[in-house]
Amino acid sequence: MRQQFDADVAVIGYGPTGVIAALSLAQQGAQVLALERDRDIYPRARAVTVNDWTMRIFQNLGIGERVEKVIDPQRALRWVTYEGDEVMRVEHPPSALGAGSRCYNIYQPVMESELRSCAQEREDLITVRYGAEVTEIEQDDSGVTVTTTDTDTGEVRTYRTRYAIAADGGSSRQPDPAAPGHPAAR
């Protein structure tokens, strides 16, 4: 009996890591279902820099030039006291990866917005559900069942995918060690 899947991969969390995961999977032809609890981008910066490895990922996805327009190359890092005395200075050499600068300053909400705009252009392979809080994940031998609750209406939905990626960072739900299938329950 052939199983019906809603997507190849569920990406849980649609911040920069989730968006890059979705874009990378779509580049390989995978159907992606991104589930994001919040309806809007978090309005404050949590990350403030990316490095040349990250820029190479953007370049490999074909979005490097777009993202580069909303971030700034960082040539040095300098710490100064309130009195103006320099405590530390680190000069960044050019990237050895062909990415331009070694480090980039970012304002995460702006960069994240640009990443999401890039992903919208792949809506043939990436479907995003905003306001979908993941409340349960069950894995079996053939795939993953992800249960969500709509943050506005309380509507509960389930999705069936082959795989799931947790990209929701610090807000990730911790698995119940007593739950069947959890290594601690064995």
Score class of each variant (00 low, 15 high):
residue 1 M to C: 03
residue 1 M to G: 13
residue 3 Q to T: 13
residue 3 Q to L: 14
residue 4 Q to M: 11
residue 9 V to L: 09
residue 10 A to Y: 06
residue 14 Y to H: 12
residue 14 Y to F: 11
residue 15 G to Q: 06
residue 17 T to W: 05
residue 20 I to D: 07
residue 28 Q to R: 14
residue 30 A to N: 10
residue 32 V to K: 05
residue 33 L to A: 03
residue 37 R to K: 15
residue 37 R to C: 11
residue 42 Y to K: 08
residue 44 R to P: 02
residue 47 A to G: 14
residue 51 N to E: 12
residue 51 N to A: 08
residue 54 T to P: 03
residue 54 T to H: 00
residue 54 T to N: 01
residue 61 L to A: 02
residue 67 V to F: 03
residue 70 V to I: 05
residue 72 D to K: 14
residue 75 R to K: 14
residue 77 L to R: 13
residue 85 D to P: 05
residue 85 D to Y: 12
residue 86 E to K: 06
residue 88 M to E: 15
residue 89 R to G: 05
residue 91 E to V: 01
residue 92 H to T: 01
residue 95 S to F: 05
residue 95 S to V: 07
residue 95 S to D: 00
residue 98 G to I: 11
residue 98 G to K: 08
residue 98 G to Y: 14
residue 100 G to M: 00
residue 101 S to H: 09
residue 108 Q to N: 05
residue 109 P to R: 11
residue 109 P to E: 12
residue 110 V to S: 04
residue 112 E to Y: 00
residue 113 S to A: 06
residue 113 S to I: 06
residue 115 L to A: 08
residue 118 C to H: 02
residue 121 E to S: 08
residue 124 D to K: 10
residue 130 Y to V: 11
residue 132 A to W: 10
residue 135 T to R: 13
residue 135 T to S: 07
residue 142 S to G: 12
residue 144 V to A: 05
residue 146 V to C: 08
residue 146 V to N: 09
residue 147 T to S: 12
residue 149 T to C: 09
residue 153 T to P: 07
residue 154 G to P: 01
residue 161 T to I: 04
residue 162 R to Y: 07
residue 164 A to Y: 06
residue 168 D to E: 12
residue 169 G to A: 10
residue 169 G to L: 02
residue 170 G to D: 06
residue 171 S to T: 15
residue 178 A to T: 15
residue 179 A to G: 11
residue 180 P to A: 12
residue 180 P to V: 14
